[in-house]
């Protein structure tokens, strides 16, 4: 699989990464090489094999639906870039009328 510069731009957007033209020129061949390498997988016949998500075939353990966490908001927000009255601040999302 060979990626084009447009593909890489689209992937970067999906991953919420900024890419300069120089970055795209660097990443396009590297990512194409990795994908070409990954496609060696197609040599293997896996039609009779079940996919593995957990190596021990265990499924996610469930817990009782009870409150176990204590309120540590202030402590968690102490390391946030910007907070005000217990809220995380980000640039305005909804435009003015």
């Amino acid at each position: 699989m060979s990626l084009t510069a447009a593909d890489v731009k689209k992937i970067a957007h999906l991953a919420r990464l900024n890419m300069s033209e120089a970055d795209i020129a660097l990443y396009t061949p590297q990512l194409s090489n990795i994908l070409a390498f990954v496609e060696h997988m197609n040599q293997a016949d896996t039609s009779h094999i079940d996919p593995i998500a957990n190596p021990l075939d265990l499924s996610q353990r469930l817990r009782k639906d009870v409150v176990t966490e204590k309120n540590e908001r202030d402590q968690f927000q102490a390391i946030a870039p910007e907070v005000q009255v217990g809220l995380y601040l980000v640039p305005k999302v909804i435009e003015d009328e």
């Binding site: 890489v8 970067a12 991953a15 990464l17 660097l26 590297q30 990512l31 990795i34």
Partner: peptide, 17 residues
Amino acid sequence: SEGFGNEVKRRIMIGTY
């Protein structure tokens, strides 16, 4: 983009794809 290095970005993009 400013916080992650090149290898991390490469892997995020391969995974996203």
